[in-house]
Computed example of a mutant assay.
Amino acid sequence: MNKTILGLDINETANLVDNLNGLLANFQIFYQNLRGLHWNIKGNNFFELHVKFEEFYTDSQVKIDDIAERILTLQGKPLHTFSDYIAQASVPVGKNISNDVEGVELVVNSLSELLKIERVILDLSDKADDEGTNSMMSDFIAEQEKTIWMLNSWLGN
């Protein structure tokens, strides 16, 4: 069995890198959505949501870097062009959203999509004995599930 320098199966690692690049692409679209929401939000909830969207995009920026560095750790090459991100992303794109409910719903829907991708990666990393990726996905999932609960509470769901 061929192994990487980290002692992981080469084929399983290549599959993980592909899936992590998909997650990276989706996080980049999510990040840009959050920037747009931060800039364009209007209404009575402006101050609350303007700050919250900034908190979310700052957190996403850290996660984007973590994902790219994990890809590099696994000896892969992270995607880094907008054309690659757009081609691989499945999170919804939000354009010109200024309504508070619509903006929060976009974040919830995006996080739900990210969770699907992360759970696939979690399963793959578990089967590959890749504890580093597994731990990262577990942390992302737990945090995002809580965020979805809180945003759904804000929405009255």
Rank of each mutant, 00 (worst) to 15 (best):
V120I: 14
S98M: 07
L115R: 01
K95H: 14
V101M: 13
Y85E: 01
S110Q: 03
A87G: 06
L111Y: 06
V104T: 06
V120D: 14
V101W: 06
K77L: 15
V104R: 02
S112D: 11
D84V: 03
R119W: 06
A87V: 02
F82H: 10
I121Y: 00
S112E: 12
N109G: 05
V104Q: 04
L114H: 09
N99K: 06
S83H: 12
S83G: 08
L111A: 07
H80K: 15
I86G: 03
L114E: 08
L122Q: 07
L122D: 04
L111P: 08
T81D: 05
Q88S: 11
G76V: 00
S98C: 00
A89R: 07
A87Y: 04
S110P: 03
K77D: 15
E102I: 05
E102K: 01
V101E: 14
Q88T: 05
Q88I: 11
E118M: 11
I86N: 12
L114A: 10
Q75S: 09
V101Y: 13
F82L: 14
V104Y: 03
I121G: 02
F82V: 10
D100W: 09
L111V: 12
L79P: 09
F82A: 05
I121Q: 03
N109D: 08
Q88G: 11
D100G: 09
D100F: 07
E113G: 04
V101A: 06
N96R: 11
I97P: 03
D84K: 05
K95R: 12
K95P: 10
I117C: 07
L114F: 06
G76M: 04
H80M: 15
V91A: 01
K77F: 14
I121D: 00
I117L: 06
K95E: 13
H80D: 15
G103T: 00
H80A: 15
I121A: 01
L114N: 05
A87P: 04
F82S: 14
K77T: 15
I117G: 05
E105Y: 06
A89D: 03
L79M: 10
V91Q: 04
V101R: 12
L114G: 04
E102L: 02
P78L: 01
E105H: 12
V120G: 09
I86K: 13
P78K: 02
V104S: 02
N99W: 09
V91W: 01
Q88M: 15
V101K: 12
V93L: 13
V120K: 14
S110T: 06
Y85G: 00
V108H: 04
S83Q: 14
R119N: 13
T81Y: 03
K95Y: 15
Q88E: 13
F82P: 08
A89T: 03
K95L: 15
T81G: 01
T81C: 04
N99L: 08
V120F: 14
L114P: 09
D84Q: 12
Q75F: 07
S110K: 00
N109L: 05
D100V: 04
K77G: 13
L115W: 01
V120Q: 10
T81Q: 05
E105T: 11
E118H: 08
Q75N: 06
V108L: 01
K95M: 14
D84Y: 07
V93F: 13
